[in-house]
C-alpha cells in the first residue's frame, strides 16, 4: 500500500514538473502588432536637426571635437580601448582597474588639478606648488603633471578606493583646456606612470 502511494506521489511530482516546464516554453511570434502608446512627459522635447551616427553615439560636442582630436601614438597593449564618450575622447582601462582618458574640459589646468586634489581629500595647490609641478610636452605644448595618492573619495557612479593614485596632465591650448588622467589603485597606477608620460608626450595636435 505504502509503495503504491509512494509511486503515485512520484508520478504526481513528475506531472507537476512537466506542466511547469511546458508552461514556461513560449513560442516567439513572427510578426508582433504594436499599438502601445504613452503620454508625453516633461522630458519629451524634440531635437530639431537630424543627427549623424557620430553625433548620436558620441555627442554633438565630441563629434565636432573629433576633427580636432589629437593624433594618438600607439598605446601599450594592455591598455584596453573603451568606448569614447563626450567626456572621454580617448578612453582606456587596464585589467588592474586603472582608467586612462583624455578630456577637453573647462576651468583651466589649475582648476582641474584642484578638483582632483579635493577628490583625494587634499587641499588645493598654492600658486607656488602649481608652478613647481613637473612639466611635460602635451600635444606639442608645455603641460603640467600632477601626481596624487591617498584615499579616493569616489563620487556619483565612482567607487571610493582606499589606496588610490592619480597621475594627470593638463595643458591649455588657445581657449581649450585638455587633460589626460590616469586613476585607480595606487600600485597599478604607479606601474603605468612611465607609459602614461610617454603616451602623453607623443600626443600630437591634429593639423
Amino acid at each position: 500500500m505504502c509503495g503504491s502511494i509512494g509511486k503515485s506521489m512520484w508520478r504526481l511530482g513528475v506531472i507537476i514538473i512537466g506542466i511547469v516546464s511546458l508552461c514556461s516554453c513560449k513560442k516567439r511570434e513572427e510578426v508582433i502588432a504594436i499599438n502601445q502608446t504613452r503620454q508625453k512627459s516633461t522630458i519629451d522635447v524634440a531635437t530639431t536637426t537630424e543627427a549623424t551616427s557620430l553625433e548620436r553615439f558620441r555627442g554633438k560636442k565630441a563629434a565636432s571635437l573629433q576633427k580636432a582630436l589629437p593624433v594618438a601614438p600607439p598605446h601599450p597593449e594592455h591598455w584596453k580601448p573603451q568606448a569614447a564618450t563626450q567626456f572621454r575622447l580617448l578612453n582606456f582601462a587596464t585589467e588592474r582597474g586603472v582608467e586612462i582618458y583624455l578630456s577637453q574640459v573647462r576651468g583651466g589646468v589649475e582648476g582641474n588639478f584642484d578638483r582632483w586634489m579635493k577628490q583625494f581629500g587634499q587641499t588645493a595647490l598654492t600658486p607656488e606648488q602649481f608652478s613647481g609641478l613637473p612639466k611635460l610636452s602635451f600635444m606639442d605644448h608645455e603641460g603640467r603633471l600632477l601626481e596624487v595618492t591617498g584615499p579616493f573619495a569616489g563620487g556619483m557612479g565612482k567607487t571610493p578606493i582606499k589606496d588610490a593614485a592619480l597621475i594627470g596632465a593638463g595643458v591649455v591650448i588657445g581657449a581649450d583646456t585638455w587633460t589626460m588622467k590616469m586613476i585607480g589603485p595606487r600600485e597599478a597606477v604607479l606601474a603605468e606612470k612611465d607609459s602614461f608620460i610617454q603616451f602623453v608626450s607623443l600626443l600630437k595636435k591634429n593639423s
Binding site: T47, E50, E55, R56, R58, G59, K60, K61, Q86
Partner: peptide, 8 residues
C-alpha cells in the same frame, strides 16, 4: 548625450 540627439 547632451544636447539631446535622436535618430531622425
Amino acid at each position: 548625450m547632451q544636447p539631446k540627439v535622436q535618430k531622425t
